[in-house]
Structures are given as C-alpha cells and as structure tokens.
Write a protein that binds this DNA or RNA. Structure first.
Lengths: 235, 235
DNA sequence: AAGTGGTCTAGACCACTCC
DNA sequence: GAGTGGTCTAGACCACTTC
C-alpha cells in the first residue's frame, strides 16, 4: 500500500478548504514558497499541488501575481429550439446583445473531410467548409465549422446573418435531422481558436441539417465548457 | 517576446508526429530518459512534455510500462428520444445489452439541495435524492442523481427498471420540460464515482421532469466525456 | 525593487511492469 | 532483475506583476 504522495495530500487539504468556504472564490491562495515552508517540502512539491488544483479546475494561476480560487462562473445558457431546431441566443437577456454582432468569419474553402462528406452523402471526401467564431464580451466562446456540398462553394456569407441565416435567405428550408453532444479535452486547435489552456473542457455539438430529405450541411460547434451551456425547452 | 519553453516545443513536436500518423494510436512513445537524451535536456523537462500531452488527452501513461498514443475511442452513442424524451440505450446494438443490467443503486435519502428544490418548486431546500450508476463492461459510465419532492421519500426503487421506470410504474405520466447540457472538468466526486483522472472531461446533462404541469423530478447525469455521446434523432 | 510564478538542471530513491 | 514512470530535494535563473 503506497502512501499518498505529499503533493496530493497538500492539494486535497487545499481543496477541502476551498469546498468548505474557508478559501472563498476569488481569494488568493498561499504562495508556492509559503506552502513549501508550511508543509516542510521543496517548492516544486508545493507547486505540484497547485498544478493538481489547476488541472481539476478549482484554481487559476496568474503569472507573477499568485493563484486564486476560481470564481463560480455562471454559464451562458444558449437555448436550442426544439421546434425550429435552430440555435437561438436568449434566456439571459444580455446574450442576445452579445451574439448580435454575428458570427465572425474565420476561413472558408474546399477541404478534404471524409467524415463530413459521408454524413452529407457525397461520393468524394471533398466538402466546402466555413469556419466561424462567436464571441461574448470579446471572449471566444463557440467555434463552428460548417461543411457543405462542394456545389455550394460560391456560397455568400454575411457575418450579420450567420451561415444558417444565409442558407435560409437562399431559400433552403432546412431542419436538423440529428444532434450529438459530447465533452472533449481541448486539443491544440481548440487552444488556439477558443484561447483556452491545455486540458480545458470543450462541449461539442454536432448536427446534420437536411432540406427536402437531402443532407445540406454538417455543423460542428465547439464551445468553451466553462462558459457555455446548451438548453432545450419543451413547451 | 519570450521564447517557447523547451518542454512545450518537445510536446508540440510529439503532437505533430501523432497527428501525422508517424506515431499511430496505441504505439509507445520514447521513454522519458530517451527523450531527455535525444533533446539534450534533463529528464524532468522531457517528463513535463509528457504531462502536457497527457493533459491534452493525446497520450496515456502506464506506470512502469511507458506512454502510449491514446487509441481513438469510439464513444457510446446513447440516444435521447425527442418524442418520449426519455433516455434510451440503442444505436450501437451492444449498448442495449450493456445497459440492460439497469441502474446500479448508490445511495438514497433526504438531502439539502437548494438548487434542485427551487427547480422543483419546493418551499424548503430539502429533497429526496437517489444516486445511481450505469456501467458499460464494468466501467462506470454515467452517474445520475435524481431529486424528488420529500413526499416521495418512500419511493421504491428497483435497479432493473431504473428510477424513471419506477416513476412510470407508479402511474406518473411525466415528460421533460427542459434540458441543459454542459461540459465540466472532473471534480473530486467525479474522480471517485466515475473513476477518472483529475482533469478528465465530463458531459453533464440536467433535466426537469414534469407531470401534469407539476415538477416531479430533477435529474443530473454526469457522463464520462471520453466514453459517452448523447444523440437526438428527429424523424 | 520586491514578490511570485515559470522553466530548467542535477541527482536520488521508490513503485510498478514485464520478462 | 532490468526498465520505466512517480515523487522528492536542492538550487538556479528568468518572466511577469505590483508597488
């Protein structure tokens, strides 16, 4: 029976103090130096405990300043309408304002994407891909990737209306055939686009839009897990 | 402009080799010792690179054996029926078999839970809480927590039918009023119940069941992010 | 300038796996 | 028993924040 590592014990102790409210959200933890002295260990061992707490999402560290108990962040609830089956900002009033700026355009072009092409029922792996980003208060929040059949590659996109809005304007009467949600760890691309740390949680929502029974668009949205929740309300 | 840390550069290089297929899923990475020698750094620096890859979910490490590229794990797709609005195992055939064993009982009793009580429209913060666990191949997979009004505290629970099945048998004609999905980092409780590492992704699905317009049950399901995806299909 | 976290080297011993 | 990852100490210097 291996005894518990020192750094784990320290992390557990600090975690307990956070849970109990002894260290309230936003408060500063002892410095690594202070912890090292207090527990009689080397600074690196104390530091390891902080890494543990950071990885568990309990604490955030600011270089040169200190480590702080993470404030309980109220997540933005983005409603997903079960009838029209479209994303709609709402619920929290400010949200409508925040998302009103529309989808920021990131890139578009023909790409090889066998998975999306298969879902779209295409014979070749090539799709027309549009990548966009939604921000709230300037913070990257939801990264979307739309895959369309190559024949739509002259697709005109206006950020104000969004990709799906543009498809509607072009006369496509689409709806969702299916949705899948899952939770991922932020990969290198997420880290860059959503500006999160390695190890952050990402909420992934994937859907297939159909129009007259024909697949029209495959959408993948990767949302910052600490900022976004998706809500469906049934009437 | 601070130059990139050595360990980050090493992690990036290895990540690139994994993405390119040079290091295929399941293959073993060089040992920490070998990496240290190869890049001319101390073993701890090479180790730090491995920590980075592990945190990003690209690699898993087995003590005494080595670090391996994580196999692309096909997630269990649990379907969520938009009509009955109930969870149904399916899609992948084996799933029905795996979940057929029912919900393993974990605990039940009166608890203080102001959040759930508020959603249930109760005057007091007390609710009757039932905690269960679903396993697939013995692996903990979905941890559920049902909150009911205290008047239902004599609620009889049979694992084979599940909590919602039992409510149906008792004559409650319930349906979901709303659902929220989000992504979290595994906290201490998740680590224990779902048996995951600190830092693992957890898919959270929260819903409110109503019966004749009255709130009946508040459900929170915490699913292992690396194993579970929730799918809704519209006909 | 002082305080604090970030990176790195050097070296040691332990715990687990695999043969 | 050899190989490999896990933990820990000791000490150093750098980068960022705060005053």
């Amino acid at each position: 029976m291996p005894r518990e590592a020192r750094y784990r014990a320290i992390a557990r102790e600090l975690g307990r103090r956070i849970d109990s409210g002894d260290l309230p959200p936003g408060s500063r933890l002892p410095t690594e130096e202070a912890l090292a002295e207090q527990y009689g260990v080397h600074r690196l061992t104390a530091r390891q405990a902080m890494v543990e707490l950071r990885t568990s999402g309990l604490v955030e560290t600011r270089h040169g300043s200190g480590s702080y108990v993470r404030p309980l962040q109220r997540k933005l609830e983005v409603t997903v309408d079960p009838v029209t089956r479209l994303h709609r900002p709402g619920v929290i009033d400010e949200l409508a304002v925040h998302f009103a700026s529309g989808e920021e355009f990131r890139s578009a072009g023909l790409r090889q994407d066998p998975g999306a092409a298969r879902r779209l029922g295409l014979p070749d792996p090539e799709v027309y891909e549009v990548a966009t980003l939604l921000r709230t208060d300037e913070v990257p929040c939801v990264a979307s990737r739309y895959a369309l059949p190559p024949r739509l590659s002259d697709f005109a996109y206006d950020p104000a209306e969004g990709v799906l809005g543009a498809l509607g304007r072009l006369g496509y009467d689409y709806r969702y055939r299916s949705h899948t949600v899952s939770a991922d760890i932020a990969g290198p691309v997420d880290q860059e686009v959503l500006q999160v740390e390695p190890g952050a949680a990402v909420l992934v929502r994937e859907g297939l839009l159909v129009c007259d029974g024909e697949p029209l668009c495959h959408v993948v949205r990767r949302c910052r897990g600490d900022l976004v929740a998706l809500t469906t309300r049934y009437e």
